[in-house]
Design a protein around this nucleic acid. Structure first.
Lengths: 155, 155
DNA sequence: TATTGTTATACTCTATAACTATA
DNA sequence: TATAGTTATAGAGTATAACAATA
């Protein structure tokens, strides 16, 4: 489109009804960020979906699967599959919570910590590309605004 | 998590390593917005994925499928499926571009225009919920920043 | 009786390659 | 030879219901 379109035609696209929609801009921005993130995580055998699970385990929060599901906005059954994968590759371990034996708490292995640290570097470096159009101050503003959208009210 | 967690534990989650990631905040915000959008569009038989196709046709741009694919960041083969659905329900028509008979241009039917106008109202109304934490001015700022992320440089 | 994790299933979305018709 | 649209297919993401173990 941008390659072949005339300037005036491109302007028409920008002025289209959907271009002003916050939800549309959010979706397109996310698609770009998602692609960059998955690309950056590929060498580590991680994805945008699985990386936060590992990262939260490595934060030492000892999260239960239920807590992960709520925080990551995933169905509990999806968390099972993500952890199965991470555990199968020796990056995390399930520990049954002795205070409530229904719950399983996620803890990182030594290898998991190592991979997570490297992956984190890669993710932060990869963010540079999709958000290159924004200054550091603008990224700060964006993060603050999105933070309130992502975690409304009581959270 | 927010229901059962103690305040201090919730604070730990907010301070977790992923919570500061722009890409994570973007993904979670988008998930909320997406859910609200699909909910709002359900009565019209549309989805967040198909609505923009109809809306762009209704803007009178006479977009080709290739242009739609680029603008919506979809593979051309996905656009085929989305248009097949809209065309099958009598909301849009494919017209072969006489200046380049390879291209097909998308135009709305009368029914398509009617549905699109109603759907647009519903989408805008539904946006209120996910972005309720932001003032109108802040939404404006967010839209401007996301616009530059979504359409970098030459676009 | 309610909740955590699990399995199973189906549907949507995304990515890729190969084909056709036009240019 | 290159491009627009199409078909087919596989893999990733999402949503739902039912079940066992524990509370």
């Amino acid at each position: 489109m941008s390659e072949t379109g005339t300037p005036t035609r491109d302007a028409s696209w920008r002025a289209s009804s959907v271009s002003a929609d916050l939800s549309f801009l959010l979706a397109r921005s996310n698609a770009l960020s998602l692609a960059a993130g998955n690309e950056a995580l590929r060498p580590f055998g991680l994805r945008v979906r699985s990386y936060p699970v590992l990262a939260l385990a490595c934060d030492g929060l000892r999260p239960t699967q239920r807590e992960l599901a709520d925080f990551l906005r995933l169905d509990p059954s999806q968390v099972v599959a993500l952890i199965d994968d991470l555990e199968g590759r020796g990056l995390v371990e399930r520990q049954t919570d002795e205070r409530d034996r229904r719950s399983k708490v996620l803890v990182p292995t030594a290898a998991g910590r190592r991979i997570c640290a490297e992956a984190r570097e890669a993710v932060l470096a990869a963010e540079a590309a999709p958000f290159a159009a924004l200054s550091p101050a603008e990224r700060e503003t964006l993060a603050e605004l999105l933070g309130r959208v992502a975690f409304p009210a009581a959270d």
